[in-house]
Write a protein that binds this DNA or RNA. Sequence first.
DNA 1: CCGTAACCTTACCAATCAGTAAGTTTACTA
DNA 2: TAGTAAACTTACTGATTGGTAAGGTTACGG
Lengths: 206, 206
Amino acid sequence: MPRQVREQQIIDVAVRVFAKRGYHAAAVDEIAELAGISKPMVYLYLDSKEGLFLACLRREAERLVSAFQEAARGAGAAPELRLYAGLSAFFAFVAAHRDSWVVLHRQASELSEAIADAVAEARRAVMGEVAGLIRDGISDSGRGSRLGDQDADFVAHALVGAADSLTDWMERNPDQSPEGITLRLMNMVWVGMRDVLDGEAWLPQA
Amino acid sequence: MPRQVREQQIIDVAVRVFAKRGYHAAAVDEIAELAGISKPMVYLYLDSKEGLFLACLRREAERLVSAFQEAARGAGAAPELRLYAGLSAFFAFVAAHRDSWVVLHRQASELSEAIADAVAEARRAVMGEVAGLIRDGISDSGRGSRLGDQDADFVAHALVGAADSLTDWMERNPDQSPEGITLRLMNMVWVGMRDVLDGEAWLPQA
DNA sequence: CCGTAACCTTACCAATCAGTAAGTTTACTA
DNA sequence: TAGTAAACTTACTGATTGGTAAGGTTACGG
């Protein structure tokens, strides 16, 4: 069995096991056994447990970010449509690859610097993409004079965080399609942003 | 030194250490030493490492949820003002107790069922509170005929997730006050929701 | 058929901690 | 002042598990 194939097999299994057990509770022995090989092979190909996890993280992060970017790029020129397409792809990805999402989302907290960096980097990539679309959307609408990069960044953080959290809602509402979820989210955020740009303000007064 | 006092001291230290190192990397020995006692004392009072973590979790979750609820309750009757007050209190809490937030937010992923449940419970409490305010806001406005509990829940998830994520933005923009952040968020979400209720829809068409 | 390199295994080591047994001191009460 | 319970310590064990040393087997080019 050639190395490249084995590596992918190992990573396939590892994503499942890490998602199920969590990083620490996952034993390399178990991953090796489920992959149909012995432990030293894992170390030969992936160096260490951390290296293995990092490989999982990188592969799945790359897939997720690519899914978002390709959907957004294939959706024409209008920022709002690209954002819609990207978010749709995101929810579809999470629905289809739950283990990948669990590994990316929940299991990467308390680990080494290298791992934290990898996760942060992936999130930064998405965040940058989204913030760019927000910026474009603002300037396209010709209403953006009052809003700067900091504001676009704020909206991007809110939006990405909302999407994160809505994956839980999606799990609890299996009848709802990824597109439906995206539509609701866009309605909430985009309409609000547009109207705020038009000067419709909310202030804490009765 | 009486037990109750010692317990709180231990938990104080443990929150710091868990926040800094993460659950697994945190050694009970270190927590004991920083608390100025020996390890068996920790086990005598808190039963196990997991019990210790659970105690941290419960205390900090209770504090956070209380901060939200008390702020919301002290803000009169209007749902939007209560929501505003609650969110403000949340951001202020995170700004003031960063370690607590790190423990609640990042360190509770891959642990035992009991711990996962405790975290889920705290989040559920906040989510329920927020969803209730959303529902009230919708029905108060008299526009809510088309929207049900599922929609309020959706908005609550989006809002709570956005708030989660904006704690990162807050860290990167230390010049922004919790109130300012809350104001931006309310403008984004509340205006959007209000206008969507008024029939202003966004649809994926150029 | 020989060498060598890729693929793969068994069997072990070593270190880290969670958790505990046994005993000591302090402080309060009868 | 004897008794006892709470507060506290030192010094250990036991188990898990990341990681490795040493060696075996297959495949293939010369």
